[in-house]
Structures are given as structure tokens and as C-alpha cells.
Amino acid sequence: MILYLIRHGQSVANESGVLQGCKEFPLSGLGQKQAELLGDFFASKAIDFIYSSDLIRAFDTAQSISHHHPIEVNKWDKIREVGLGPLEGKTRKELHLQFPELKDIPSILTTGIEGTETVEEITTRCKYVVEQLLVGHRRDKVVLVSHGGFISIFLMYLMFGENWNDIHRPFIIGNTGVSKIEFTDSNKPIFHYINNDSHLVSGNVPNESILY
């Protein structure tokens, strides 16, 4: 299986510095342009299936790829962004005022604050996604359009399994950044590239790495 992991284009929340999580925000004007260039990038690539997070910013980005292929975008809630509960819809400044303990927590994705998605829940999602892909798409070329937080964790899960949260997570996934992973017959992943944004560079479109 060839798997493409893609973050959505810039959203209006990315643009204004608001933490999203699973809260709905549409693509910004820049995000729409990024999505168009992403679609052009995939126009000449062979694809068998396209899956998207059920959040609108990811689905609209995925649609830009399907415009170049006779393939319907399938919404999949298992690849939506990490749930951040009471942290969603707030700026970093607002977060630090309401939750001062966040200043000492290394990742906003795994704070342990009540109402946020737990490490165990995220791990279960990652495991399920891998299992379903390997069962249903072993010989296919699959696109998953998801979110920066989930993708960065999913990459760690592919590398380290259930111990992913014990290891420093080094990935920054920019808007419409593309990561390509190949699964061998032994189900071991090979990483061709991470966060490729050459389509934006060639289109002279900025890609600020604003997370989540």
C-alpha cells in the first residue's frame, strides 16, 4: 500500500491563531489556493481511494484532489483532529490565562485536561486506522486528508507503536503538507518523505506552520 497523509489547507482559525481541535472552521482564502495547488500536485498521480476527516476544512481540501480523479471522497471520523475539548476555539493567550498549567506541558495535544482526548483514546484510533487500511487497501494507493496534530501522532505511532507518547515528537506538518508512506508485505512502513510542500513553493504560496 502507498499511503499519502495530507494536512488540510489553512483554515480561518489557523489564520487568526485559534486552536481548533474538532471544532469546525472553513478554509481561508489562502487555504483554498493551497488546496487548488495540492489538487494540481496529485493530478498526475495514481490514486485508488480518497478518505477525509469529517471536518469541513479537511473535506474541502480533499475535494480539490478528487476534482482531478473520478473518485469520491469518503468521510472518516477516525482521522479527524485530536479532540481538545475545553481548549478549542481559544487563542494561545486565552488558553494560558484560563489554563496556566499549560505553560509547563510540552504538547497541547496531550495535556490530560478533563474533556480532551486521552493518549489511550488517540492510540486506539491510530491502531484502528492502520488495521483497517491494511485489511482493505493492501495493494492500493490511498490518500488520507487529516490534520496536523493527528498526522504528527500517527507518524509516531507507525514508528513506535503504543509507546509513541514516550518519545519526543519532532514533526511539524504544514497546511497541505504531504507525507508518503509505503507498507511492505511484512506491514512495515517505509517513509518516502514527510511534509512535502513543493506544490506551494512552485505556486509561490506561503505555508506557515500554524499547528492544530
Rank of each mutant, 00 (worst) to 15 (best):
N175H: 11
T61G: 13
I173P: 00
K93M: 10
T118K: 07
F99T: 03
V135P: 00
R138I: 15
S202W: 06
V205P: 07
Y212R: 00
V130T: 14
S64N: 15
Q32G: 01
P86C: 04
G136T: 14
F41L: 04
G148D: 05
D197P: 00
H168S: 09
F42Y: 02
Q98K: 06
K188Y: 04
I50C: 07
L158G: 02
V201L: 13
P206C: 11
E88A: 03
S152M: 09
S28V: 05
S179P: 01
F191D: 07
D54R: 07
D104L: 14
G9D: 01
I190E: 09
K127F: 11
G112T: 07
P100S: 06
S52D: 11
K127N: 15
E121H: 10
K23F: 05
F99D: 01
G148L: 04
P106C: 06
V73H: 14
E101G: 01
I105T: 11
K75P: 07
K180S: 05
G85V: 06
K45G: 02
S16M: 08
K78C: 09
V12D: 05
N175L: 08
V135M: 07
S53R: 01
E120M: 08
D140G: 12
N14E: 09
R80Y: 06
P106I: 07
D77A: 12
G9A: 08
V145M: 14
L37Y: 12
M156T: 05
P189E: 05
S152P: 02
G31W: 10
L109A: 10
I56Y: 08
S202N: 14
L144F: 15
K180N: 09
S66C: 14
S107T: 15
H147Q: 10
L27V: 01
S52Y: 11
H199G: 08
S198F: 09
T184C: 05
L102D: 13
G39Y: 10
E121T: 11
G177H: 02
I167Y: 14
K33Q: 13
T118I: 07
R92L: 11
F41Y: 14
I173M: 02
I167N: 10
